[in-house]
Nucleic acid binder design. Structure first.
Lengths: 251, 251
DNA sequence: TAGTGGTCTAGACCACATA
DNA sequence: ATGTGGTCTAGACCACTAA
């Protein structure tokens, strides 16, 4: 009697912590506000720092928090909706999309990419790197793989690398008639270079969007885009904004 | 000279470990094979168990490993492609989709859902629970929120809850003319009940697919589907299989 | 009952940002 | 120089599975 928790399942501490913190974020903190540091939070809740960190990790995974080394932990703004799929299918780089060309190189792609393109595993392809900006921040980094067979007219007169070369590859690609495309989304962790481009640590959770472009009866190009999973919500069709949680209340 | 690593950035141990393990998985292990236990692996690599676990965690996140308490760590099969978006838009539950009705209840949804449906925050809606099966495993759990206004003809004669009630709600919903729909995908962590349905621990990483169904000029229903992020690759359009990495070599 | 992964602790040191 | 989050250790105990 009185011991009302006799038959309760022992809920992990970090899980309970996460719930408590989550509610505190809703009610007591504003977006951008900085939280007490991990050592103090851990002390305040009477747990080891590692346990506290386990809770923070999950909240960051859910896009509620943002942690930066040397700075602190802040309350994250609601995720931004990023339009990924639209009704009409187009080649990358046509008129007004919010991708910025970075550079272009000729290199042997990973085996998985070579298989998808049906090129030989030792065959070099054009790899165009692009970055997607949204609200002033980089939200995605992309590698667009274009087999040399897809852009046969690519002149040797163009710059051998850099943004100019990238532009040339895209221009040639757009001459083909796009017959279709499909996409896949999966969870991954950021490679070192992508992490740097996205201002995250290597291994940060990302959403991998793989797009195959079909032309001339084959896969004419393959894009692998790496989106920040903490700050992005990928939208398909319509692209209308979805309101979210209690954050809806202002700012 | 000879000290070739003077200016190398100190790569974290768990990151290097992950790379080594990843390569070992490709070359020395078959899908389903069980790895040595964590204590032995840690000893073998000369690191603390926590560090080893950090590497395993990432590999699990990437769908390379599967860990089960009391059993061990096994090599995961390649992710299964799950078709999420198709060209033609349809109501949930029409003819042959691979969702199984679980039950149905009348309850007040979370504020975020109420806002999206433009119902009052205290207004009860029908909540249909469904489970999606693929290859004999549950890959997703869904809550389909249907405002009472969307199914006004729902007879009180039908069962008050359970699969029969769920069927009735979907049947009434399908009478409306579907005017459009849109989707969003984001990263989340599994709620306790979803985790149980998906045979995962609470907090496991999941892909949240939010679908809005439009009819009669408003949002007539809203679905929130929770997909296992470790085993699923969500496909949009076409639904064709994408070949993957070295796993492509058989089964 | 034995062995597995999951949780938790109390430290330590490091890399990074800022003042 | 200080303070932050990131990495790492060497333990301990618990929850779960399967023999």
């Amino acid at each position: 009697m009185g011991t009302t928790q006799l038959e309760t399942v022992p809920e992990p501490k970090y899980w309970h912590l996460k719930t408590v913190l989550s509610e505190a974020l809703d009610s007591e903190f504003a977006v951008g506000e900085i939280l007490p540091n991990e050592r103090e939070l851990a002390a305040r809740f009477g747990v080891a720092r590692a346990t506290l960190r386990q809770a923070l990790e999950q909240l960051e995974l859910e896009g509620r928090l943002q942690r930066r080394r040397g700075v602190g932990t802040t309350v994250a703004p609601p995720r931004v909706g990023v339009a990924v799929g639209t009704e009409q299918q187009t080649w990358p780089g046509v008129n007004g999309d919010d991708w910025q060309l970075v550079d272009c190189a000729l290199a042997v792609p990973p085996a998985a990419v070579a298989d998808a393109l049906a090129t030989g595993r030792d065959e070099e392809v054009h790899i165009v790197r692009r970055t997607r900006m949204s609200h002033g921040h980089a939200v995605a980094a992309e590698l667009l793989h274009v087999p040399q067979a897809s852009v046969p007219e690519l002149s040797g007169i163009d710059a051998p690398s850099g943004p100019a070369r990238a532009r040339a590859v895209l221009r040639e690609l757009q001459r083909l008639e796009l017959e279709g495309q499909d996409r896949a989304v999966e969870l991954g962790s950021a490679r070192a270079d992508d992490a740097k481009a996205l201002d995250r640590l290597p291994g940060a959770p990302v959403l991998l969007v793989t797009t195959r472009f079909f032309a001339e009866g084959r896969t004419a190009a393959l894009s692998v885009a790496t989106y920040r999973a903490d700050t992005c919500r990928l939208t398909f069709g319509g692209g209308v904004e979805i309101h979210h949680g209690p954050e809806t209340q202002a700012s």
